[in-house]
Amino acid sequence: MIVLDLKCDTGHVFEAWFGSSGDFEEQKGRGLVECPICGSQKVGKALMAPAVGAKGNRKSDTPAKGNAPVPMQSGGEGSPAEMKALLSKLAEAQAKMLEKSDYVGKDFAREARAMHDGQQDERPIHGETTLDDAKKLVEDGVPVAPLPLPVRRREREN
């Protein structure tokens, strides 16, 4: 799992978690990465610098925080610390919501449509679908929405 600081085209800097750098690129390519503040999908990696401790023969006024990424510039409404706190709360809320939801994998569009059409009992679900299939669901009045943060699939956990 990696943490990336991302920045949208309007200047908002935010933090996001991904299974790998490749997962970020794949999700971005599928249109699944967007700014949580303004919704822009024009998102890239923000300029970051690692927190590097002082040389061994120098005394530092503040202790280093390991190798945590530190954004070099901020933008938008609120400091990076405030944004990280808000995203942390969002991640907690999403995790709590997903505890009561069934993961249906790549069958998401079929399952959502079947519930909408009355062919299955309604229940909270989450899963994966293509952007085209998601748009078709919305056009047909099926109540769906993207999750605000990426979800680590159980089969990928160690």
Rank of each mutant, 00 (worst) to 15 (best):
I2R: 07
I2N: 02
V3L: 13
L4Y: 00
D5L: 15
C8F: 02
D9L: 01
T10W: 09
T10P: 09
G11S: 04
V13P: 05
E15R: 01
E15S: 05
F18I: 00
F18G: 00
G19M: 12
S21K: 12
G22R: 13
F24M: 04
E25H: 09
Q27V: 08
Q27S: 14
G31Q: 07
V33H: 02
C35Q: 00
I37M: 13
I37E: 11
C38P: 02
G39E: 06
G39K: 07
S40C: 03
Q41N: 13
V43F: 02
G44L: 08
K45M: 06
K45Y: 03
K45R: 10
A46Q: 01
A46F: 04
L47N: 10
M48E: 15
A49M: 07
A51W: 12
V52Y: 10
G53P: 15
G56F: 15
G56E: 12
N57C: 14
S60I: 13
D61N: 12
P63R: 14
P63F: 15
A64V: 14
K65F: 14
K65Q: 14
A68Q: 11
V70M: 11
G78N: 01
A81W: 06
K84I: 06
K84P: 01
S88Y: 08
S88I: 09
K89I: 10
L90H: 01
A91R: 09
E92G: 13
A95F: 03
L98E: 02
L98G: 06
E99A: 08
E99R: 04
S101K: 00
V104E: 06
G105A: 04
K106D: 13
K106V: 07
K106T: 09
K106H: 11
D107I: 04
F108E: 00
E111F: 04
A112T: 04
R113V: 09
D117G: 07
D117M: 07
G118Q: 03
Q120P: 07
D121Y: 05
E122H: 14
H126F: 08
E128D: 06
E128L: 10
D133M: 11
L137W: 03
E139L: 15
E139W: 15
E139F: 13
D140R: 15
D140W: 13
G141Y: 00
G141H: 01
P143S: 01
V144W: 03
A145S: 14
P148T: 08
L149H: 03
R152N: 12
R152P: 07
R153E: 12
R153D: 12
R153W: 10
R154F: 13
R154G: 11
R156Q: 07
E157F: 11
E157K: 09
N158P: 15
N158E: 15
